[in-house]
């Protein structure tokens, strides 16, 4: 399974990178969204895969069972998911404004618009 996930993560990274290289801003946004998914999955896989080991302390226990998943990467990813939502919203609003202000979505045309 880890092997398959490694390939999945590789494909996500490749797709995100390919989209980031486009000139249309909307594709770049898609690339950013995919990139954060890829990173989250990478951290998750790096934390170790566990089936049926939710990181909750069972009744009568005072610590996690040895078979349970590592809670730390999960906490990291949880914040990352919410943050990337905020970032995505921010970029969407920004692209919308840039489109209104300049009438183009080609990043090559957007170059140097801060000077005008």
């Amino acid at each position: 399974m880890e092997f398959l996930l490694a390939i999945t993560i590789g494909v996500l990274y490749a797709a995100a990178f390919y989209l980031l290289l486009r000139r249309g801003v909307v594709r770049i946004i898609l690339g950013i969204a995919l990139l954060s998914q890829a990173v989250n999955l990478l951290i998750f896989t790096a934390g170790g895969l566990r089936e049926g080991g939710v990181p909750f302390i069972a009744e009568g226990q005072t610590a996690l069972a040895a078979t349970s998943a590592d809670p730390l990467p999960q906490a990291l990813i949880l914040t990352a998911i919410v943050i990337s939502f905020g970032v995505l919203a921010f970029t969407l609003a920004m692209v919308h404004r840039a489109d209104q202000a300049t009438g183009t979505d080609d990043v090559d045309d957007l170059k140097g618009t801060d000077q005008t």
């Binding site: 919410v82 939502f85 905020g86 919203a89 969407l92 609003a93 919308h96």
Partner: peptide, 16 residues
């Protein structure tokens, strides 16, 4: 905070 952030984002984008 999450409630406010999310509704602010959605309302801003939607009402525009």
């Amino acid at each position: 905070a999450v409630l406010g952030v999310t509704t602010l984002i959605v309302f801003s984008l939607g009402e525009d």
